[in-house]
Amino acid sequence: MKWKVFFACAAGKYHLASNAPCQDAGQYTVVDDVLIGVVCDGAGSASEGQFGSDFVAKRVAALISDSIKSGQFAKSAPADCRAYLFAIVEQARSELDEIAAARRLTLRDFACTLVGCVASRDAGCFFHIGDGFAIYMKEDGESVLSQPENGEYSDQTYFVTDDSWSEHLRVTPLSEINRGGIIGLMSDGTSPFAVNRPKTGFYRPFIDPVVNFLKDATEENGNQALKHMLEDEKTYQITSDDKTLLLALAS
């Protein structure tokens, strides 16, 4: 199985206006035929949210990638996925805790959400703490989703850095990935226009033209086009939040 992966991130109006950096971050890699993708969203209320999201995205992707290379990741056993991912997130989290302590800060200052995937032809899973969406759409449109967890309010969520993070780590198994399938990971800035109203999958008038374009695009060209789209004036009428989108096409 081959993966074509595209990724783009655009700062929201809120950050542009205050000259603050985008607090979303993302990382992806393909090891053999296994796709590893991670998107993190730094909390607006945390002083180091940007550092936190960037660090967690990079470290979680790298730790998964290393364990696949060393053969530790049981690709074919989705039941083991949770324990495996639990250990990975715990490791990234404790590294971040050391950085925080060295700077006399606390983990909370680095608060960020996490949504990611590990996927090969035979199996895979989404892993998720907090908001954002992960969607796997088969060629016939049938979809598997990992939904945001918000608590009562839509502007409140759970973070990797929370003490109770392990209660909020959600793992959604993916039984098999077929050619023509699409995996999408996004922050909560992107989902209002990328996800359909009943929240059962992508919003087709959004995703279909995007996928049509990306199918024939080079990685560089596709990434530029995605970024251009995430910076479209129309998106600033929808959200003032940062917008990140990772799309992986299986062929």
């Binding site: 839509s154 209002p192 226009f193 919003y203 959004f206 033209p209 995007v210 080079t218 086009a225 009428q237």
Partner: peptide
């Protein structure tokens, strides 16, 4: 190749209050 994706619908589906 152009970096404009044609015909993408960008509307708000979220209903947040």
């Amino acid at each position: 190749m152009s970096n404009i994706i044609p015909d993408v619908a960008l509307i708000d589906n979220s209903d947040e209050r």
